[in-house]
Amino acid sequence: MTSDESLSSGTSRRLTPADLHNVRFTRGSMLHPGYSDEEVDRLLNRVGEELGRVYAEKAELRDRVHALQAQVDGVEVPAPPSEQAVRLLATAQQTADNYVAEAEDFSRQITSDARVQYEEQLRQARETAGAILQAAHEAAGRTTGEAGPRGPESGLSTQELEDQVAYLKAFAQACRVQLRSYLEALLIDVESEWGRADPAVLPKAAARTPVPRGKQPAALNVARAMPMDDGARLTEDSGRADGDGGAAGSPNAEVVKQGR
């Protein structure tokens, strides 16, 4: 055999079609005409092995193709949603958005009304307290003026006036505390009203129980994800110095804000 020693000597290398083309068997002798039996048998063995391997590989590949095909078939290429479905979902979403917007508007109105009321009452209370204080000072001035020469008595009335001033200060403080808690109560109402702004629940919202934190019913979700940016509509007082909340702004006015 002339082509390649390794062809006959080992099985480490795979048999290729070119190998077979190049096979040249050793001629026999006069005694044994034809090819060398031994070489032919060896080659037939190898060809047999190789064919077996090829078939096995082919079967394995066929299985893989089937498996992959099944995978591909299993994947649903999502059909584009029908026009009808899109319209339906769009309407539902819009309805939900409108409810949320209404609830938010309601909350904004109530909160700003409450704030106006709170500030007005605080202002009045302060004015009243100021006036009382003023009157007390004047009275004190008069009393000490009149009672000046009388000695001990004047000391007493100053003491009384100081008590009165202290009382009035405390009264003003109490007013402030009370007004504050009044406003807080209003705000809590607003929060809970707003929380129950789910369309289904809205008409029954008359019962005003504040919802404890962390225990809101699932129905709250509609209202929780309010769309509005915080106070997106600036109320008329937003230009004042105490301004706006946590919003961070733009890098600097000339780049961003002045364009708007």
Binding site: R108, M228, D244, G245, G246
Partner: peptide
């Protein structure tokens, strides 16, 4: 962080 609750503001409130 400093947060001011805006009237009707869902997150700040």
């Amino acid at each position: 962080i400093h947060v001011k609750a805006h009237d009707g503001g869902p997150v700040s409130g």
